[in-house]
Nucleic acid binder design. Structure first.
Lengths: 196, 196
DNA sequence: GTAGTCATGTAAGAGGTTACATGATTAG
DNA sequence: CTAATCATGTAACCTCTTACATGACTAC
């Protein structure tokens, strides 16, 4: 497909786990082409325009298999949890918003992940169908299973995050009940430069 | 404390959620000093050496409160889950290793997170004790609670990840039983350049 | 004297984000 | 003719990783 096609599919496929903007995708396609992982067929668009339709080369397919077989590098960097450990520096009201936003985020994601898992299990997802078409039937189950499993892991995690944040809300509400007086840490509005 | 002190505390405190190497920390301390968030007292080390002992300025404390109160930006980028969705490109043996490594990773982390949560709840963690000493007693509960909660979230997640990966193992083992013949995707050994 | 710890940096490069920038085609 | 969609890029900047580099102090 073209870079444009890829971008438009992205947020309902690979983008769930690896969001990427167009400023990343176009140069990356060029790099992968240069490295021999992709090849581009240049096709006309209308009278004057041109577009590049990419496909994987055998080297690209082999690199995909290599990457899929390679061990994961676990980094466990998590800005959300890091912030939690420092919520005592925020007002209880701001802490409340932290947990409320956490619930809202995972509730939204859960819906999207559930929808995606269903579209995979029922084999209705367009990109999945395209892939199944070019692979032998005996592989179909695994193709569906691994993809669905990834989303089901996220769904289970979302449930856990929501339960956890509800515990957080309960704690914050107790804090707010116990001191009617405002806590020392106030909520600043000014925005300063962010630091790592 | 000095940059060196900070680095040596890092992997048992903030480094759980934001690992960072020394090549990041020293320049960042300089930058934060330049921006007025930190100030350094230059102290001698022995006869010739020097060291910089940093402390937070009021501006630094206010930036900390601002950051703690600021909404999270959820990105949901997850290379591990992304790889899962493509495990059909690996051999069942490689997929097996994926899930085994997942279990090993979270089992190890869980132990560390549990230990940390206990050290926080029992108020034995040195950095926590130092912080409690400079804050009024009525804040102590919240200081401990927010930190412990972050680790307890991770512990719950670890349990979930392990259960999930065991489901993955069961599926892979079924695949291996069902086809005694090797699957089409073989496990390449050669290392090629990694791509985003 | 030598190994381990204390102490602090720099350089090159990879990867990612935000913003800027352009222009053709198609549907109404 | 005008708005939406198709289509592709570049530039500046920030962050992070890996590797390189130095040297003093302390305990044995």
């Amino acid at each position: 497909m073209t870079g444009y096609d890829l971008i438009s599919y992205f947020d309902t496929s690979a983008g769930f786990f690896w969001p990427a903007g167009q400023a990343q995708i176009y140069p990356e396609l060029r790099r992968m082409e240069k490295d021999g992982l992709l090849e581009a067929r240049v096709a006309p668009r209308g009278q004057h325009g041109e577009k590049r339709i990419y496909s994987m080369t055998p080297a690209g397919e082999s690199e995909l298999r290599r990457w899929a077989s390679e061990q994961n590098a676990y980094l466990d960097r998590d800005a959300v949890r890091l912030k939690c450990t420092h919520l005592d520096n925020a007002s209880p009201e701001a802490a409340r918003e932290y947990f409320e936003a956490h619930i809202a985020h995972y509730a939204l994601r859960m819906k999207q992940w559930e929808e995606r898992a269903e579209n995979l299990r029922s084999r209705r997802a367009p990109l999945l169908r395209a892939r199944l078409k070019v692979r032998p039937a005996r592989e179909h189950e695994a193709i569906v299973e691994f993809k669905a499993m990834a989303f089901e892991a996220q769904i289970a995690r979302a449930k856990l995050e929501i339960k956890w944040a509800q515990r957080g809300l309960a704690f914050v509400d107790r804090l707010l009940r116990e001191n009617g007086t405002p806590k020392p840490a106030r909520r600043p509005k000014a925005k300063a430069k962010a630091h790592a």
